[in-house]
Nucleic acid binder design. Structure first.
Lengths: 155, 155
DNA sequence: CATACACCTTAATGTAGATTAAGAAATGCA
DNA sequence: TGCATTTCTTAATCTACATTAAGGTGTATG
């Protein structure tokens, strides 16, 4: 298990890479995202300190995701085949987050998803540009800006 | 690990139930779904033979999901705390499916999600009413009906 | 058989969010 | 400090999907 330093903007993993690793963020901030057929980015998740970020859970598959650094970061790189007792709890946590994510995408409006995001990830929300939050929420930056503006005007 | 018989329409688990189980479908078909604040159903997943269906992965949390039978089914009911070696692979598989689901919700149109669903779950698609597929896709039955109609007319 | 019920379709209208474009503000860099 | 680049906002227009409502089909039930 080695520890590496990555500069802001540096890419750790590209979609299609054969071997994906598990990255444990010691300090800084990483993200994972896809690029769809239209060339549009969709951020899948952010990973600040003490979070784990990794690709499609199955170690034998190719990567779906790009993973890069949004801030200068220090990262532990682990091999997926390394399996320890605690691993199961980590997997449960990831499934839990994913389930909630799908539910939100299906049942909440963009602005509701935004507010939930702000509440749940206050810290992250202050550290990434708004357009990245929009990407995470599954909407365009313009739509988010407008939604926020509309909200303000009502209050 | 006990085996139970459930009739079509029977509910195995309700949102808010304190203890969630893991259900392994021996025969028949189950589904999990949520009911949002507006009372609208959103199907999270279908589980035909040999599939596992379970709630929010963390065993200590309350259930998010309703789980019921769409066909007369035979189901193994397992306790989540029962942990064996194979379990890890099952968790990886679930994470993989969830990841792909989120990606689809964010990057594909309703009709594209439908076609992907048909391709991936041909069997399921023939066994559940269309309105349930719509719910799984995150759209209304009307929208799905229209999208299909439009598609036919173009070809 | 008749009636009810669940499901599918079609159509009219409404709306959230996409797209495009332009300018303003913030940030990075020489 | 000044310039360049990225990010945010606003606004006009467009489109996918939601909502509502009505009618049609199949199937289970008295």
């Amino acid at each position: 298990m080695k520890q590496i330093h990555v500069k802001k903007g540096e890419t750790l993993q590209k979609s299609g890479d054969p071997k994906s690793k598990v990255y444990v963020v010691i300090s800084g901030l990483l993200r994972s995202y896809i690029i769809d057929e239209k060339g549009k980015e969709h951020i899948f998740m952010f990973a600040p300190e003490n979070w784990t970020i990794a690709d499609s859970a199955n170690p034998k598959d190719f990567c779906d995701f790009f993973i890069d650094a949004l801030e200068d970061s220090v990262v532990h790189v682990k091999d997926k085949t390394v399996d320890n007792k605690n691993n199961t709890q980590l997997l449960y946590n990831r499934i839990d987050v994913l389930q909630k994510r799908v539910i939100m995408l299906m049942s909440l409006s963009a602005i509701d998803r935004y507010e939930h995001f702000i509440k749940t990830y206050t810290d992250i929300a202050q550290r990434v540009p708004q357009k990245m939050i929009a990407s995470y929420l599954g909407i365009t930056p313009e739509a988010l800006s407008k939604a926020k503006g509309d909200k303000m005007r009502i209050l």
